[in-house]
Design a binder for these strands. Structure first.
Lengths: 180, 180
DNA sequence: GTTTGATATATCATTTTGATACATTATATG
DNA sequence: CATATAATGTATCAAAATGATATATCAAAC
C-alpha cells in the first residue's frame, strides 16, 4: 500500500459530486462501492486532514449545537488531481479470495470441509447478488442521468462476475462429490 | 488487517507440501496463487520468525558455502493450526478493483479516457487468461493426483471469472460508445 | 572477464485494517 | 414520558500488508 494512497481518489471522487463529512464518506463507501473497494475511519480521517493540508479539499464547520460536524469540499486542485489519476495508465486490481486459499490448501483437510467452504461462499454470493439486482432495477427505473451510465456499469460488472461465481460453485461441488 | 495474519495460512499451506525457504515461498505465491492472493518479503520474513517462535514451524540451516539459506519445516502444531483455519466459518474475500473505481468516477473525466481504461483492463485480463489456460492444459495432461483436484478448481475459478470480465468489457465498451 | 539475472535474507516508511473510545442526537419501545 | 437502542460524528491505536530498497552470493550468458 505504500506509494500512492488510493483512499484519496475515493474521497475526491465522492466529493466531486457533493460535500460530505468523514462519516458520510464512510457510508458512501459502504454502499454500492463496497463491492469493489473498501475504506475505514482509520483510513479516511487521516486522509482528509492530509488532503486539506495539500489544498485538495477545504473544510467548513457545519456543527449543529454541541454536535461536531466537519464538511469537506473539493477544490479546483482536487478536481485536477482526480482527472490526472483517471488518466494514469497503470491500475492495480488487488484480489484476495480467502475462499480460494482454503480450496487450494484443501488437501490438508477433509472433502466435506472443502465442500462446506464452497457452500459458505455460495450463500454470500447469492446474498450479494440479490442486493446488486435491486440496485440494477432501481437504476433501470431512473434513466437519462449521465452519471448513471458509470454507476450502472459497475453494478453490471458485479452481477456478471457473481453469476460466474455461482456457475463455478456448482461445477466445483459436483467435482468434489465425484459427480463430474 | 489487524487480527488474524492471513499470510501465516499461506505459508503453512505451502509448507504442508514441502520444506521451503522464505524466497521459495515468495516464488510459490507469485505463481498460480498470485491469481487469488499476494505476499511480499516484508510480509513473509517477519511471519516466518514469528511462527518459529510460536512453534508452528522449525528452521534448519541449509546454507551452501557462503550463501545463507534457511529452510522451514511445518510442525504438528502448524498442521493443526492449518486444519483449524480450514474449518473456520468466516471468510473474507477482499476485492479491490481500481478499474471499477475509475469507472465509477468516470464522470469527472472524458468518455474516451473511460473506454481506454476498460481496454487496459481487457488487455490484462486476456494476458492472464492465456496463463490460466496454460495451467489448465498442463493439469489435464497429468491427472490422477489427489491434490490436483484442488489446484484445478482454483484455476477453473480464474478462467470462469476472467471470461465473465471479458464479456462485461465488451458490453461496457458498446454502452459507452452509444451502441447499446 | 564481466555483466546480467536468479537466489537469498532483511528492514523501512507508508498505507490499510479493524477495533475501540467517546459523545451527541434521533427513534422506537414499554 | 422515560429510557433503551440505533444512528451520527470525530478520532486514535496496534497490527498487518505493501512496495521499495539494501546487501550479498552464485550461475550463466556474452
Amino acid at each position: 500500500m505504500a506509494r500512492e494512497r488510493k483512499i484519496d481518489m475515493v474521497i475526491l471522487g465522492l466529493l466531486s459530486h457533493e460535500d460530505l463529512t468523514g462519516y458520510e464518506i464512510k457510508k458512501r463507501i459502504d454502499g454500492a462501492i463496497s463491492f469493489f473497494w473498501k475504506g475505514s475511519f482509520g483510513n479516511i480521517y487521516p486522509a482528509l486532514k492530509d488532503m486539506e493540508n495539500q489544498g485538495l479539499i477545504t473544510k467548513s464547520d457545519t456543527s449543529v449545537g454541541e454536535r461536531e460536524r466537519i464538511t469537506y469540499h473539493i477544490t479546483k486542485s482536487g478536481r485536477n488531481r482526480l482527472k490526472v489519476w483517471l488518466k494514469e495508465e497503470q491500475v492495480s486490481n488487488e484480489l484476495k479470495y480467502e475462499t480460494l486459499l482454503k480450496l487450494f490448501f484443501g488437501g490438508s483437510g477433509s472433502r466435506e470441509v472443502t465442500v462446506h467452504n464452497i457452500e459458505i461462499f455460495e450463500e454470500q454470493v447469492k446474498k450479494d447478488l440479490r442486493v446488486l439486482r435491486t440496485y440494477y432495477e432501481t437504476l433501470e427505473r431512473s434513466q437519462g442521468v449521465e452519471d448513471h451510465v458509470y454507476y450502472s456499469l459497475t453494478v453490471s460488472f458485479g452481477i456478471e462476475t457473481y453469476e460466474a461465481y455461482l456457475k463455478w460453485c456448482d461445477k466445483a461441488k459436483k467435482m468434489l462429490e465425484g459427480r463430474a
